[in-house]
Amino acid sequence: MTGSGYTFTASDDCRLLLHTGVTGKASKMGHRLTIAVTRWRAEVDWSGDRPIGVDLSAEVDSIDVVHGEGGVTPLLGPEKTLARSNALKTFEAERFPHIGFRTDTVDETAGGFRLIGTLEIHGVSHDHTVDLTVADLGESWGLSAEAVVRQSDFGIKPYSQLMGAMKVVDEVTVEFAAERPKRA
């Protein structure tokens, strides 16, 4: 992309999270996970006072299980490590190490911007739309978005165990949040 813009990466004021659910007859045994993506980069290209393009790339092997709700037992270190390992296998991280989103169009909305583009996961690309909310925080802008991604749309079979009695829900919620100082 050309022009000036912002670069966002994982930091205390920029985060990219995945939220999973659990289903099946034994779902009470499983945890609803919050997974942080710790290595990602989003380049936002600007023209005048508005964004005109976004190019995001995330490294699949940078996922870190940070929280788990539910389950029979608390989600502790060893269980987090196992959940991460299972997710990496599900995503085939060695074969498909990157996830990307690139906009074709950025439209202004009442509360921010609609990002229309292509999402690539697991070597499969699909059209995808993300609604980005922009909030005036005084000295800075607060940016946030949530989007639902269906794993099976990208050739991923959601993780399951106990012969399918407990499995990860096909829809994963992706959450983005950032804060940036206002431009001069």
Rank of each mutant, 00 (worst) to 15 (best):
D107T: 15
A87K: 06
D153A: 10
L33H: 02
D45M: 13
G112S: 09
R39D: 11
G21L: 02
T109K: 00
G21F: 03
D55F: 02
A10S: 10
T90W: 11
L115D: 01
I116R: 14
N86W: 00
T9S: 10
R114L: 12
Q161W: 13
T118R: 09
T103D: 01
I99W: 00
A178N: 03
L18T: 05
T133Y: 03
T173C: 08
H128V: 04
Y159S: 08
I116D: 08
I35F: 02
G53Q: 01
V60G: 02
G164C: 05
D104L: 11
R102S: 10
D55N: 09
E92S: 14
R114D: 07
I99H: 02
L143K: 01
L88E: 05
S160D: 10
H67F: 11
H126D: 03
A147N: 08
R39V: 13
C14A: 14
K28G: 09
G53A: 12
D12E: 13
D107E: 14
F113N: 03
H67G: 10
R183V: 12
C14R: 04
R114Q: 13
G112E: 04
G3Q: 03
Y6S: 15
T133Q: 08
I116F: 06
R114C: 11
T90G: 09
Q161S: 15
T38V: 13
G48N: 07
D131R: 06
E79D: 15
A87S: 10
M1W: 12
D12Y: 03
K25H: 14
